[in-house]
């Protein structure tokens, strides 16, 4: 009796330790970035273009660029990903081919982002002649987050109890009506979770936009989707490694804004998800 009690305590200790090991670095990162980055944040930093070779001024073009790129990626990836997920979970038959396709999609989520960057360069920049531009970057980011959106959406759709579908069909509703009115509303929170994950990843990645969209230094806002833009992750890389004598607080300030931007965009999705969950009545 006593022995098993001790074993339990030891197990609890290690479980707690593992949790601590995860929480502490994350907490530290947030604390350090806030501590060092907050002093840099002022109106000029947020609204001005970079000046004096990016050593002064603000990061406004990079903020705008990242917002454009991420929005473009979501606009492209969410509808396509959702439709693909609906097809895979509701319409496709369960056979070797569809299982292979599902496996391939899951594995695509693990492909290094620089590979997507190279792919985007070949397809959008060169083949479609979009050049390095917002549209090339958005599409590349969109393709990168598609597997995440498809996989999480599929799981969300499949987690809606089968009995709901049977009931709806037994009342004479068509398959599409069943999906539209019963399955989709109940899968929406899960689908939005996938979108949140994709959004965070799209905002933070440097490699896919490196060849396809991001400008080293561009002290003006884009005029069309075929213009290059600055982007926060790439800008952070540039002022950290490529430009000498940049103030430390500017770097941390940029990181802080990137985090805050992702958090803000997630917050919107989380609020929508909360609204859907509240509507859910089971």
């Amino acid at each position: 009796m006593r022995n098993s009690y001790r074993a339990q305590n030891i197990a609890f200790f290690f479980l707690f330790l593992a949790t601590l090991l995860i929480v502490v670095p994350v907490g530290l990162i947030v604390v350090i970035i806030i501590q060092k980055g907050l002093p840099a944040i002022n109106w000029q930093f947020l609204s001005d273009i970079p000046r004096q070779g990016m050593r002064a001024g603000g990061i406004f073009p990079a903020i705008v660029g990242t917002v454009y790129l991420v929005s473009g990626a979501i606009i492209f990836a969410l509808p396509i990903g959702l439709l693909a997920a609906i097809y895979l979970s509701e319409y496709s038959k369960d056979n070797l081919l569809t299982r292979l396709i599902k496996l391939a999609i899951v594995n695509l989520a693990g492909v290094p982002s620089v590979v997507y960057g190279l792919f985007g360069l070949a397809l959008f920049v060169i083949f479609f002649r979009f050049g390095a531009s917002i549209i090339s970057g958005s599409l590349t980011l969109g393709i990168m987050i598609l597997p995440v959106i498809i996989t999480t959406s599929r799981e969300a759709l499949e987690s809606v109890p089968y009995s709901f579908r049977e009931v709806s069909l037994s009342l004479g509703a068509s398959k599409w009506q069943t999906i539209r009115h019963i399955v989709l509303p109940n899968a929406m929170p899960g689908i939005l979770t996938g979108t949140i994950l994709g959004l965070g990843r799209a905002a933070g990645e440097t490699a896919p936009i490196l060849f396809t969209a991001a400008a080293f230094y561009l002290p003006q806002l884009p005029n069309s989707v075929f213009d290059q833009v600055m982007a926060l992750p790439y800008h952070l890389y540039v002022i950290s490694t490529q430009v000498p004598n940049v103030e430390e607080k500017a770097r941390y300030g940029t990181a802080f804004i990137l985090l805050a931007l992702v958090l803000f965009m997630n917050l919107v999705a989380i609020i929508i998800r909360y609204k859907f969950r509240k509507k859910k009545k089971w």
Binding site: S163, F164, E166, S168, L169, S170, G172, S174, I182, K281
Partner: peptide, 21 residues
């Protein structure tokens, strides 16, 4: 099929309300 199921309704073994009011 939709018309058939409208003409031939079904009540299942377990009470299965839809997640609605």
């Amino acid at each position: 099929t939709e018309l058939l199921r409208k003409r031939v309704g079904m009540v299942f073994a377990l009470p299965l309300p839809l997640p609605l009011s």
